[in-house]
Design a protein around this nucleic acid. Structure first.
Length: 422
RNA sequence: GGGCGGGUGGCAGAGUGGUUGAAUGCACCGGUCUUGAAAACCGGCAUGGGUGCAAGCCCAUCGGGGGUUCGAAUCCCUCCCCGCCCGCCA
């Protein structure tokens, strides 16, 4: 959501920034509508003022016992009420139109985000680790998992359809072990471990900007709730509709939760294996902070996510998303991509975004900057990391010629001492 | 799920139809006093919006939405949330 005042003051700047994301100029449409609303509002407010004034006079007249004057004033009020009703309805509907426009527009990128149209224009910032040289043909994680008898897509398909999996034995345990390792590391970094709801109301999803535009990506549960597509939703909304004392900021939270995504629109992409599932676990990082701190917090979150891959000794690279590949609510995003031998490429395993005040405005989340000066917080979110995809990366990078999997050193204690999965 | 009681400013808490946008206390800000601080005293102190160069003026807001009324924090309906009791349940 945007500050309409900022658009009034800088319409060309907004259009320029939206253009970077491939959008037509929007500000003229917005400001015309804004003007229309304000004009109608003035009429309504004048009528309301007349009504209020006359009503007070009625009270006074009744007190004096002047019935005649009271009756005369009542007809005056009735006239004002007609105006209020008619113009008020118009104001409401015009406001709804403007709100629809504004809430479906994406955040604007920070000035230093690289220009570009698609993921092909993303910029590689750094690389860590050397992809391992295999003296045999490395297998795909699903082949490895199925051969071990610990990754069962067929059983999952029978009860739930495609894009689901049943993990068994050591792989099921590894899913838990990875999440535990990540939570331990992130809480060590100062993120508070949190267990939030997995079902949320539409307004929470509106707050983090999955709604209204991306309803088709979500699962609805019952009449009132949606399943969270990421715990970014739950964690960020913990501060909705509140005014935080500035000394509680920055607020850093982490949670391991299942994430539910319908994956509408991704037909044909990653149809096999665990890369793209309807349900997966993810350890999320969310930071709520003052505007002046969000850039540093963003870098901090990137570092915290990287640390997990380093601890697991998985080769990865850091990519900065270009303007055209930025998510809806983000003003700047770093992706972490882990090396997958079977695909001979790096694949996204974490996405870390600074949303600025975009979500805060939608949630009405503020902090006390000074007495009488409440300001919107900045919100940031990132995966630290996607557990399912980390499991994939471990299987593929740590596979042996005989199909067994060496357990990464850091994970052994979390696997009850198990060193090789066979 | 059923019954009852609640939801008021940053917090606590008055207020049941007419200058109540809202008493009072705490917190906070400014001042007096003090070497300094505390205490005491004086003053200020909700949010969003419209309009204006500004001072200001105006509108809305007492959980959300709707209604009754000339006029609603106050009455009615509905939804949400909190508490307690009952039922059900991991």
């Amino acid at each position: 959501m945007f500050d309409i005042k900022a658009i009034r003051e800088n319409p060309d700047e907004f259009d320029r920034l939206w253009a970077k994301r491939g959008l037509e100029p929007q500000s003229k449409k917005i400001l015309d509508q804004d003007k229309l609303i304000r004009k109608a509002m003035q009429v309504v407010q004048e009528a309301e003022a007349a009504r209020n004034k006359a009503s007070k006079q009625i009270g006074a007249a009744m007190g004096k016992g002047d019935k005649e004057e009271a009756e005369r004033l009542k007809t005056e009020v009735a006239g004002a009420k007609n105006v209020i009703a008619a113009m008020g309805a118009q104001v409401d509907s015009e406001k709804a139109v403007l709100n629809d426009t504004l809430s479906s527009l994406p955040n604007v990128p920070v000035h230093d985000v690289p220009d570009g149209e698609s993921e092909d224009d993303n910029v590689e910032l750094s690389k860590w680790g050397e992809p391992r040289k295999f003296e045999f043909e490395p297998k795909d994680h699903s082949d490895l998992g199925e051969a071990l008898g610990m990754m069962d897509f067929e059983a999952a398909a029978k009860m739930s359809g495609s894009r689901f999996v049943v993990l068994r034995g050591a792989l099921s345990r590894m899913d838990r072990a990875l999440a535990a390792l990540m939570l331990d590391m992130q809480t060590e970094e100062g993120f508070e471990e949190t267990s939030p709801p997995f079902l949320v109301w539409p307004k929470a999803l509106y707050g983090t900007s999955q709604l209204p535009k991306f309803a088709e990506d979500l699962y609805k549960a019952g009449d009132d709730h949606y399943l969270i597509p990421t715990s970014e939703v739950s964690l960020t909304n913990t501060v909705r509709e509140s005014i935080l004392d500035s000394d509680v900021l920055p607020k850093r939270m982490t949670a391991n939760t299942p994430c539910f995504r319908s994956e509408a629109g991704s037909a044909g992409r990653d149809t096999t294996g665990m890369i793209r599932q309807h349900q997966f676990n993810k350890v999320e990082l969310v930071t709520i902070c003052k505007p002046e701190d969000s850039e540093a917090e963003h870098k901090n979150m990137l570092r915290c996510a990287e640390t997990v891959l380093q601890k697991l000794e998985l080769p990865y690279r850091v990519v900065e998303l270009c303007t055209g590949d930025l998510g809806f609510g983000a003003r700047k995003t770093y992706d972490l991509e882990v090396w997958l031998p079977s695909q001979d490429t790096y694949r996204e395993i974490s996405s870390i975004s600074n949303c600025g005040d975009f979500q805060a405005r939608r949630m009405n989340a503020r902090y006390k900057h000074a007495p009488k000066d409440n300001r919107f917080v900045h919100t940031l979110n990132g995966s630290g990391l996607a557990v399912g995809r980390t499991l994939v990366a471990v299987l593929e990078n740590y596979q042996n010629a005989d199909g067994t999997i060496t357990v990464p050193k850091a994970l052994v204690p979390y696997m009850g001492g198990l060193e090789v999965i066979s």
